[in-house]
Write a protein that binds this DNA or RNA. Structure first.
Length: 103
DNA sequence: ACCTTGACCTTGG
DNA sequence: CCCAAGGCCAAGG
């Protein structure tokens, strides 16, 4: 069993609907709202170590690119589930795909 | 306690 | 949009 922070992050990631995405910062905000700690880097750390069993490709950087070192695989998933992309096909169109969990 | 590292972000140019 | 600088949070050496 992992600590509460890890569980909170994974829970939010798993709540992201197919075709939508959340940035590391947005996740950090949601989790920080309830646990009062953590930042984007902390979310990245959790994903790096425990993100294997989650839809990790729905977690992206503020600029719309996929996780460092995993841009390729992420893109395939975006294409497969119809995530809105920008013209270059390498970045998610945040204005259309951004999502936030309901209150 | 200090320094480095990391699936990061924002601001200014 | 890209790049460089500075900020940020926590873990590990």
């Amino acid at each position: 069993m992992d600590d509460a922070y890890t569980e909170a992050v994974l829970s939010v990631v798993e709540s992201i609907p197919p075709g939508h995405v959340m940035t590391y910062g947005a996740i950090a905000d949601v989790v920080g709202e309830t646990l009062g700690r953590g930042g984007p880097r902390q979310v990245g750390s959790v994903m790096s170590h425990e993100g294997g069993g989650t839809p990790w490709w729905r977690v992206i950087r503020a600029g719309g690119r996929g996780a460092r070192g995993h841009e390729i695989g992420a893109r395939e998933h975006w294409l497969a589930e119809g995530t809105p992309l920008l013209a270059d096909g390498e970045r998610v169109d945040l204005r259309r795909a951004a999502w936030t969990p309901p209150d």
